[in-house]
Amino acid sequence: MAEEKSLAEIQREVDRYISQFKEGYFSPLALVARMVEEVGELAREVNHRYGEKPKKPDEAENSVELELGDILFITICFANSLGIDLTKAHDQVLEKFNTRDADRWTKKHTE
């Protein structure tokens, strides 16, 4: 089993990969376009797997896991290109959910 990586490690790993190319990171606008493209591919895969639209016989096999991986990669590229620490961003979002939405959902009670 692969060793668990921190989000910071994953950001560094993606940066090492992108840094080997002269082109570097795409522009923020190009990264948003790529992200939308990948989300569309995820939607298509989810629709094939869980929705009413079966794949065509000649369509390649794909997976929700791979599509989510593509979205994660693009998200990390976007964050890296703008110098955003995704661990910090995650902590800020979770804090927002824990305060703003603290009583929004019905909590499970453990005994």
Results as ranks from 00 to 15, higher is better:
Q92N: 08
N98I: 01
D58A: 05
I74D: 00
E4P: 03
M1S: 11
K53T: 13
A89V: 01
M35Q: 09
R12Q: 15
T99Q: 09
G24V: 08
L7M: 10
L31G: 12
H109T: 14
P28I: 14
F78C: 02
E4H: 11
I71G: 00
N47M: 05
E13Q: 10
E37L: 14
H90M: 02
L94R: 09
A8P: 05
R12Y: 13
G69M: 04
K96W: 07
L7T: 09
S19F: 09
E41D: 00
V36E: 14
T87D: 14
D103F: 13
V32T: 12
R16C: 15
T106G: 06
E59C: 03
A30Q: 12
T87S: 15
Y50C: 09
Q20T: 15
V36K: 14
S63N: 03
E37Y: 07
V93H: 06
S6P: 03
F97T: 02
T99N: 13
S63G: 05
K108V: 15
A43C: 04
Y50W: 07
D101C: 11
Y25K: 07
L31M: 10
A43W: 02
T75V: 08
C77Y: 00
E45N: 04
Y17Q: 11
L68Y: 01
S81F: 07
I10D: 09
G40M: 06
I74K: 00
S27Y: 06
F73Y: 15
